[in-house]
Amino acid sequence: MALDRELVGRSYPPSAVYEVGRAKIAEFATAVGALDPVHLDVDAARAAGHPDVIAPPTFAIVVSLEAAFVVLSDPEVGLDYSRVVHGEQKFVHHRPIRAGDRLVATTTIDAARSVAGNDLLTARVELVGEDGDAVCTAISMLVARGVS
């Protein structure tokens, strides 16, 4: 199904709160081999000027990709989930994600187009802290491959 350009600008309601825990940060950091002490050791993180351990730079995907997927369940978008692959990813960090953060994700469709039978959809997810402070902007380009 070809994407409708009028989808551009559509926003979805904010997600439930995602509470960032030290153990989850350590698990993710270890899985990607990011063994810098600021991810694993509270004292080291504080010595580096952070209030608590900070997450590695791509940790935001744990929260943002699920939020981006709300567009796939929008019946008016009509992307075939089984054909969707991740085309591009971008993070703009306003500050590091850290343990204790209570993040809320809000998703907006930034672009939608069909190219050579493939549907390309760009979802921008704004992650904000409980006080409304900007934490990270995560932009995912999803590609629904056309039936060949």
Partner: peptide, 30 residues
Amino acid sequence: HGMFTMALAGRAVTAWTGDPAALLEYQVRF
């Protein structure tokens, strides 16, 4: 996972700067 490759590639930069918080923007095409 594309995101795993992205995470591993980012380590080359954080190892260089010595500060993961110094990575302000990061984008890739898979």
